[in-house]
Design a protein around this nucleic acid. Sequence first.
RNA 1: GGAGAGGUACCGAAGCGGUCAAACGGGGCAGACUGUAAAUCUGCUGGCUUAGCCUUCGGAGGUUCAAAUCCUCCCCUCUCCA
Length: 420
Amino acid sequence: MSAKQPNPKPATASEERELERQLEIMRDGAEELIGEPELRVRLLESVRGGDPLRVKFGVDPSAPDLHLGHTVVLGKLKRFQDLGHIPIFLIGDFTARIGDPSGRKKTRPALEPEDVQRNADTYLAQVGTILDVDRAEIRFNSEWMDPMTTSDFIRLCSNYTVARLLERDDFAKRYAAQEPIAVHEFLYPFAQSYDSVALRADVELGGTDQKFNLLLAREIQRAYGLRPQAVVTHTLLVGTDGSEKMSKSLGNAIGISEPPEDIYGKAMRVSDPLMLTYFDILSWGEWDDLAQARSAVAEGKGDPMALKHELAFRLVARCQGDEAAKAAREHFRSVVQRGEVPEELEEVSFSVGSEGSLGVLDILRELGFAKSNSEGRRLVTQGGVQVDAKVVGDPAARLSPGTYVVRAGKRRFARAILRK
RNA sequence: GGAGAGGUACCGAAGCGGUCAAACGGGGCAGACUGUAAAUCUGCUGGCUUAGCCUUCGGAGGUUCAAAUCCUCCCCUCUCCA
């Protein structure tokens, strides 16, 4: 395949309309669309009955639980799929073993192959809730990276310079801050770029933190005589803390497989400004009916809580269906807003043993409400523990056989059944 | 290969022979206030059978009545020179 383009016939008016329609959707919610001229040429071919676009989205299977942050780009991939293009869901099993430094302040640990495989399986199961996996191309990059020889790889790396690598934002920052950068981290972008060569990607989607890698892929594709892919970057979703990017390891993520009440509750707990951001990034062009409510809240009018409820509801519904969303909403209203005890509680049975009673600290620990007795003691002393709606102030308190509703903090509940 | 700086609790960072379970900030947890929002305020934040005891300051040894603090070796990181 040559990088040279045949001189295409100009687009007719209807082709032009279709082109614009598709480009509009591709740009929607995106931070940047790079390589639009090439994309137009390629898209026109597709509109005229040629092959659909090959749209790549690569994930690192190091964190197996998908959260809303992942769904931003995944949602875009779905929209490409809806336009009739081919979504390529690339699982970076090879690259995961390298460890992507993107957006990281620290070197990322490499994973064991078994972990990678297990994570990939979990991943795919979750992706299915958003994307029609049966009509998508699912690939693993070990397919072409494993057979690659060292000299192949060195040749690949010869297409770029150290100075330009160091310009990359996260490397530059770490270098300036005198923090370590391991050599293998430099290799990651090359491996990722080669994926685009192997897959003959026409478009690659990613977060803004991926911009460097995505752009490098264009250069590498050219070096291998291919047309450079277009690049569509998306703003990273900020985590529930409102400052760091959403990430499971930072504990600020809303996972799409979490219990519906948790997704709903976490969504309700974000700040109002953050809610608006979530709304914009996660609407995928589907929530136009709420546009008015959204702008009212943005102007300080309107009802922020009502909008937040709506957002929470739709997020749960998107991941887990309407029934789950309804239940989650009811749960939130009753437990959180009215302070009622949840209808369904986790039940844990205990045996009181020879003493005929059990200490609260032991119960808290067993329920997972406290990691240690000291932590439990703190919780109790600070008035954070209730048994049957009564505050337990004494860490030495003991419960005799019976059934109790144990509450820790505002929203952790369990039913403890003490037996002789 | 040479010279210098450094590795402290979840993170950042002070401490540099006893008064150190280790200042301060962030994060986390709990409480108050709320819309379980945010913001704010208060308290807690190694473990245990908790007025006491046990284990922590890169690792292993050593000096000392006493070490995060001093010595030796090792491991790791950064900078400059080659």
